[in-house]
Every structure is written in structure tokens, then in C-alpha cells.
Amino acid sequence: MNKARDLARDSITEPRWVRVTLTLVALTFLVLFLVLPLASVFTEALRQGVLAYARSVVEPDALAAIRLTLTVAAIAVPVNVLFGLTASWCIAKFEFRFKALLITLIDLPFSVSPVISGLVYVLLFGAQGLFGKFLMAHGIQIIFHVSALVLATIFVTFPFVARELIPLMQEQGTDEEEAATVLGASGLQTFFRVTLPNVKWGLLYGVLLCNARAMGEFGAVSVVSGHIRGMTNTMPLHVEILYNEYNFVGAFAVASLLALLALVTLVMKSLVEWRFGDELATGGRRH
């Protein structure tokens, strides 16, 4: 029996040495490009001891950067959850014109370089921008201000929740919603009692990815921030400034926080996948 299975496997697999070589190559790449850099972030950060590390993290500018990053994420993620839910609900549950266009638009931030995304906001809201005069006249500042950071982050993280939910909702179809309607449920009751519970793990998954990107975003944010220390510097920007000033311990200390965030996200993401894999969209593991 076992022998037969082994034979069957042999017929579709490669010789042992090929398998071993391929595995080794893959592992080498992983270690070189992922594990080593990650480890070096932490060793660099701790090079001058735990005390220096702690000092760089609680230094006022670093704290301001952490606070700002958290603020930006705290605004951008809920906004995109709201948008992602509505968009995927519309796309999956209703038929309308220009649906394909909407789906393409949602993907736009993935295909545009983040720097361009940032530049767009400068062109729109900057002093020389389209709405610049109007905003100036009314004393509203967007560029080089927290609002620009939030806008740019929302733009860049736009697709994460929607892209996760659309295939999931499409796969689930509209049967349960129709059943709820026939049983007398209102639109809101249907959404909160049927649609939302059915996608909750997919939503969490999307939120995790969205949050990781929101906190780690560099390009778009860099263009619109103005790099004002303690004011408009998010963590990634702060890392860059410190690094350019040859403050390696400081730079790597803040960077290690970001890396830690990435690791936590990864663990939670794997947990969701492992525990609720069948409740995620089939194409859910793209990013």
C-alpha cells in the first residue's frame, strides 16, 4: 500500500537531489534577503545597549513620530474599512453600470507609484495647486500638515479592505441576503446580522494588511509631509532623517518598532489564515 503510494508519488516528483537543491536555493534566498536584514535591524538598534535603545525610542521627536503614525493609521484604517465595506457590498450584491470601472479604480493605488500618489495631493492642495488659492484664502492648510498625511495614506491603503472583501462577498452570493429580506429584515438588519458576520474574518484580515501598510507607508507620505520634526514626521520618515544624520542607533531603534509591528501583523495574519482560512476569499493570500 505504502509502496504503491510512494511509487505514485515518484511518478510526479523530481529526483531527490533536485528537490534538495531547490529547497536549499529557496532557503538561502530567504535568509539573505529577509532574515538577515530583519536581524540586522535589531542588532544595529541594540548595538550600544538597551539603554541607548530605550533613550532613542522615548526621545520627544521619536515619540511625536510614533504618536503621529498611530493617529494617521487610526483615521485611515477606519475610513478604508468603511469604504471597503460599502464598495464591496455594492460590487458583490448589486448589478449596475460601470461596475468594472469601479473595480479597476479600486486597484489604481496598487498600480501607481506611491510618490505619484503624494504628488497628486501636492498638485491639488499645494500652494500652487488647483485648490491652493482657495484653501489659502480660507486659512486651511493641507499640504505639510497632518491632513495631507492622512489623505495620502488613505489613498495608498485604499484597496486593501475592498480587495479582500469583494471576492469573498461575490463567492457568498446574495442568497442569504434574499432569505433575510423575505423573512422581513430591513436593509440595515440584513447587513449587520447576515452580511457582516459572514465576512468578519476576511474583514479582520484586510484591516491587518491595511494597518501594516498605513503605518509603514513612506513614498506618498514623504512627498506631502514637509518633514517637520515633531510635527509632520511619521515613523518611516523619522527613520530616514535619523539615518541621514548618521544617528544609526536612533534610526534602527525606531525601525525596529516598525519591524516589530510587521512581525505582529504577520503572526496575526497567519493566525487568521490558519483558523479561518475557509472563511477568507480564495484569492485572499495575494499580498
Binding site: D175, E176, E178, A179, A180, R193, V194, N198
Partner: peptide, 8 residues
Amino acid sequence: FQHYALFR
């Protein structure tokens, strides 16, 4: 419903 559409 044809496929019952029970709330899963």
C-alpha cells in the same frame, strides 16, 4: 431557496 440559503 434552492440551496436553502441558511445563515451559515
